[in-house]
Amino acid sequence: MDGAGGSAALLLLSDGRLPAGGYAHSGGLEPAVTAGRVTDMSDLERFLVGREETAGLIAAAFSAAACERSRRGELFEIPALEAELDARIPSSELRRISRELGRQLRRAMSAVHPHPHYDALGAAPHQPVVMGVAAASLDLSPRDMALAILHETNADAAAAAAKVLRVDPFDVHAILARMATRLDRLAGEAARAAQGPSADLPAPGSPLADIAAEHHRRADVRLFAS
């Protein structure tokens, strides 16, 4: 299978230590904690599951779709992909953050592993789109990329949990372990959707995350940018 030899490259892309700014974000956890909606471990688990099923799946499907189109050399599809992703993020703050992270990731990847496809992206492409193009440049498959995005979605929030909640890190990782098969299933769903038209990519909404993100931007005291 294509990309089967790219395991090390996959680890490189999905590592939170990749200098692309992800560490500054809690994946919506800090805004949810600030709003008083996540106070204990069962809240945290429901938050993480809900997030993976919505924003996580969208990011995974769009990165897989960008990877698929980049692998096929169909970069003319990227603007429509960007518009479809915009349409799935009602929060202007979350759109801004996605594009800011995309800009940082492109800068990082252009330095780490240059590829002409990065030039075809606009000034501030969405982060999942850049991820997908980066994955294609490293010969990774859309499903690999979807899984990496889903992993990163959880890992960012789990790392932030230790800072914004009073939690036992073993308990947090027990949640992640329980979610492993869910992430595999969502990665498969994202990869299947990536084969189809951009208009049919998943569009699960997360109303509370959208609202909390807009409040968070205006918060006086915050550890994370989102």
Partner: peptide
Amino acid sequence: RLRFGPSAAGADGAAV
């Protein structure tokens, strides 16, 4: 898309 009910995992979470 919006989903809730018994088969919508995580819809009762603070992200949704």
